[in-house]
Design a protein around this nucleic acid. Structure first.
Lengths: 157, 157
DNA sequence: CTACGAGTTCAAGCCGACTTGAGGTCAAGA
DNA sequence: TCTTGACCTCAAGTCGGCTTGAACTCGTAG
């Protein structure tokens, strides 16, 4: 397959494919003249790369996760570690999503007056902001319940 | 409060605070000599900004979401839209997390040989890659079950 | 009164992931 | 044979969100 076909079948621009080759994420199996030739297996590899990118991983993290032959290279421990990393991100995002949803219908004048919203802010990791509460708010522990930890769900209501 | 105190209490570097002021995300309440003075309310605003950043929003998106006086400015519709946006991201990330967890213990030689893994790839949005399956795989619809949609949970097992 | 340290401005640099542009090569079709 | 157009290389540009550095200005402690 030439670069155009790879590009067409994956939606990845040729410039990106060259860039990825340069970075060692993919490899061409040779040249016809000066033109790169790719093995169809590169499609699979590109899907894996897309998976990683969608997961927010940097290109060099991704290349660290793949062997040259397209197999995943990490041991179970490191894969699980990555999964846990993602899990943290997911929890943060979930808290933020709930904060937004809540803010959309909370009647409080200032969002920070609303305990629900403040809990979301803390869960989102913006909690180090020791916001001097304008009003009589007492500190609340930022903790996740057993159920929340179990389900990965963070419900603010 | 001077810039150092804001910085100390929020963990945000002074350079970032100046940058955010320049971008219109925060405002100083005046100057003593040439030095900025901030209202304590800026702490609250910074928490909101941190919330947005943690949610992956760009600075100008965030400033579009806040009034100059620190109140959220968006109507319910736009907030909900943002929440839905996040929701999509969360689903993608969840699929990827499960793909990683699965890959950590799946015995398949090539991950793409494993239907579970391939489902994750598709759910992650890397599905446009029409990976010519090396082997007899039939196309599977990428759909999310009613339960999955309801719980926001994507279980691959 | 003066030196210090914390603040200021402005321009430039950095990072990652690409994209763009100029200029070159080459196989195939008219 | 010549032209076309798809590909090539390499350098430079882009974008967002900051950081860094040089040069400067103050209020205050000694």
């Amino acid at each position: 397959m030439d670069i155009a076909e790879v590009s067409r079948r994956t939606g990845v621009p040729a410039s990106t494919l060259r860039y990825h080759e340069e970075k060692g994420l993919i490899a061409s199996i040779g040249r016809r003249g000066q033109r790169r030739l790719f093995d169809p297996a590169v499609l699979e590899r590109l899907a894996l790369i897309a998976l990683g990118r969608a997961g927010g991983f940097a290109l060099d993290e991704i290349s660290a996760m793949l062997t040259p032959d397209g197999l995943p290279k990490m041991d179970r421990g490191r894969l699980d570690a990555k999964a846990n990393e993602l899990d943290q991100t997911i929890q943060r995002l979930t808290a933020i999503r709930e904060a937004l949803r809540h803010a959309a219908r909370c009647p409080a004048a200032r969002p920070m007056e609303c305990p629900t919203f403040r809990r979301a802010v803390r869960l989102a990791g913006a909690g180090r902001f020791e916001v001097a509460p304008i009003g009589p708010f007492k500190a609340e522990a930022v903790s996740v319940t057993r159920r929340e930890r179990k389900t990965g769900d963070v419900n603010l209501e």
